[in-house]
Amino acid sequence: MKQTIFSIQDLKKYYLVKLGLFKKAYIKAVDDVNFLIREGEAYCIVGESGSGKTTVTKMLLGLELPTEGKIEFLGKDLSKLLSDARSAKDFRKNVQAVFQDPFSSLNPRKTVKDILEKPFKVHNEKIEMETTERLLEEVGLIPPKEFLKRYSHQLSGGQRQRVCIARALALKPKVVILDEPTAALDVTIKAQILNLLIDLKEKYNLTYIIISHELPLLKSIADKISVMYAGKIVEEGAAERIFNNPKHPYTLGLLESIPPPDPKSAKTKTLPTLEGEPPSPVNPPKGCRFHPRCPYKFDLCDKIEPEKVEIYSEHYVSCHLFNRK
């Protein structure tokens, strides 16, 4: 069994919002989430905007504190790790991130060289002449000397994202968290960045946590997928099973709404859709949060919240359809 990198237990994040002068309410961004991430895995969290997937990553990175629940990194409590300066630095070295928007993730007043030297400066490590050049070669920016002196506005979207990946790899981390790494890129560039990520993962035995709303992209890279809906994980399992044999009606609907790039396929002609919109996180529906949109709902669904059921080994579904005892 491979080492467990992150273990997340009963994680909750509520935000207090003021509605008018006296009314207050909680936004339940993440509500009772559990999962494990193992070494060398590409663990993907899929969901639509507002599903809570970005909040989960912010908590994993220690940028936000959980309201309730526990995050363990290599068996140690994350909040304790971060409260001590030395162990915090160690955690930072091991867990790096690449963000969604390549336009705002590079400081516009710094050159690529400054940006790539920053990680070493922060951790008081020696920078050799070739270090930054090697990093650029690693992410396929060739010749590196040409790129070192540039500012971010002199790079294309794909090139910027490559610089972000190089920055994340600089300290040789164990885990890289990728928040929508290709969302803002053109199709051909998407494929290239995806390939780069796959190669780097194999080369350095990296663990990836990928957040995305673009389901098809994950097909090429994911080992495990968890599908989030309105702050909860509705289905979790091996990527192959999720794609080929989805169980939860939401996962099914999500997969169906991907238009295939082929005008002749039958699916293109009908384009099955899931009606309705995700619920407001302030006031989620009672029972199963998906029931107002679910084509298979029955009398239990709007009353009782479904429990997590393990239908195959390590494949969990939270849906009453699979819980008829």
């Binding site: 990175l61 940028l63 915090a88 630095k89 930072r92 070295k93 867990v95 790096q96 991130a97 963000f99 969604q100 928007d101 705002s104 993730s105 590079l106 400081n107 516009p108 007043r109 920053k118 990680p119 922060v122 951790h123 972000c164 920055r167 300290l171």
Partner: peptide, 26 residues
């Protein structure tokens, strides 16, 4: 709120470093 500030935090940069080196020039 820009992502490069988040990225600096994730790298482990301190508050003073972030304020004066990442934010101030902008």
């Amino acid at each position: 709120e820009r992502e490069y500030v988040q990225a600096a935090k994730v790298l482990g940069a301190g508050n003073l470093d972030i304020m004066f080196n990442e934010i101030l020039p902008n």
